[in-house]
Simulated scan of single mutants.
Amino acid sequence: MQCAFLLTLPMERFMTSLQDIINPILLNNDVVVKQQHLGVLRVTGVDAKKFLQGQITCDINKLTPDSGLYGAICSIKGRIITNFYLVQYNEDILMLMAKDLVEKTTLHLKKYAVFFKTELIDTQDKMTVYASFSAQNEAQPSNHPERFDTTQSKNGVTLTLCQKPLVMQWHIVESESANLTEQNAHLSALSILDARPLIYLEQSETILPQWLNMQSTGGISFTKGCYTGQEIVARMQYKGKSKKQLALVTWDGLLDTTKDITDAQGKSVGQVFAVAAIQSTHFAQIILNIEPNETETLSLDNHVVTLLPLPYSLETKK
């Protein structure tokens, strides 16, 4: 899997490319960092896939020992309760999500799990997740932003989230076997440029999947059939008028990220969703209420911010 640049806007709209940012930082600096914010929910039993298929936005039939998934669980109103990455580990399914959403997700799913031969187990104390980042290899394969390669091992599984513009992997290992050593952890801020965010508890049930571009990254299947919230999600895709979408921006210095993103006329056009920094350089995922080409500039806290290209096309994946 690799991530191709989206250049739907004129090149002059972008001050720099993701490659220009990432390559100099990671050229001689591999990164390994423990993902303290992630939790792991294990789904077991002969009905595990059948059960999940009726609850998640992605198509569980595409989950294999060699390929993971990105998806969400929605409320009946189509809002994301939690979103996650799925990997198959032995005979079980591991759901990787924000740690503070594991309990809420478990309670939500248990309402439906009683009708299936399946069990939900909070595994975050038994599984440890590390992230690794390195500069891309020019010989990477063609773009499949909705596919996430996985590699099985005796004590865990490795999930490749992205190979371009950087190689980013999660290593999910049995805690008793965890022996990875953290290095250059401060550079993990680059992970925000993958633009496939996981929400936290405070954001739960406030966001539609399309606002995070999940229709473009394999996070939503429009052919798999019914799941909770499916009618709202499909209606938003084919009949909705919302322009809300995830975008990437960068700036130098400290700004008030609680303030709105504004256009050239000072009108509110979005909010900061997540932010990370390497020294004084900040990177942010923002949710815009407009198409990026509808304004000449974007500003935060009365300072112009630089729009960055996304690492994938915004075409809808089926």
Score class of each variant (00 low, 15 high):
155 N>R: 12
173 V>W: 08
186 H>K: 11
31 V>R: 00
170 W>H: 11
84 F>M: 03
71 G>P: 08
275 V>Y: 13
288 L>N: 00
181 T>I: 15
155 N>M: 08
310 L>Q: 02
144 H>A: 00
136 Q>P: 04
145 P>F: 01
311 P>E: 07
46 V>T: 07
51 F>P: 00
279 Q>K: 14
85 Y>Q: 03
151 T>Q: 15
200 Y>P: 07
143 N>K: 14
168 M>L: 15
62 K>C: 13
293 N>P: 04
197 P>C: 12
245 Q>P: 00
33 V>N: 03
166 L>Y: 00
232 I>P: 04
149 D>V: 11
253 G>L: 03
314 L>S: 01
289 N>F: 02
208 L>M: 15
36 Q>G: 11
79 R>I: 13
154 K>L: 14
13 R>Y: 13
17 S>Q: 03
150 T>V: 02
105 T>F: 06
99 K>Q: 06
255 L>F: 02
205 E>H: 12
171 H>F: 10
190 L>M: 05
129 V>N: 06
312 Y>Q: 02
189 A>W: 04
246 L>I: 06
222 F>Q: 11
121 I>E: 13
210 Q>A: 13
98 A>C: 04
202 E>T: 14
62 K>A: 14
233 V>G: 03
195 A>T: 01
217 T>P: 00
137 N>F: 09
262 T>W: 10
202 E>V: 12
252 D>E: 14
8 T>V: 04
65 P>L: 09
191 S>N: 14
89 Y>G: 04
20 D>E: 04
48 A>K: 14
109 L>Q: 08
108 H>L: 02
163 Q>A: 10
219 G>S: 05
303 H>L: 11
297 T>W: 12
216 S>T: 01
89 Y>H: 09
193 L>T: 07
35 Q>E: 14
45 G>Y: 06
37 H>N: 15
255 L>V: 08
76 I>A: 10
152 Q>C: 11
317 K>W: 10
62 K>D: 15
184 N>H: 15
80 I>C: 08
256 D>N: 12
296 E>P: 01
102 V>K: 01
272 V>C: 11
226 C>D: 09
215 Q>C: 05
17 S>D: 04
129 V>K: 03
212 L>P: 02
86 L>C: 01
186 H>A: 12
312 Y>S: 06
45 G>I: 02
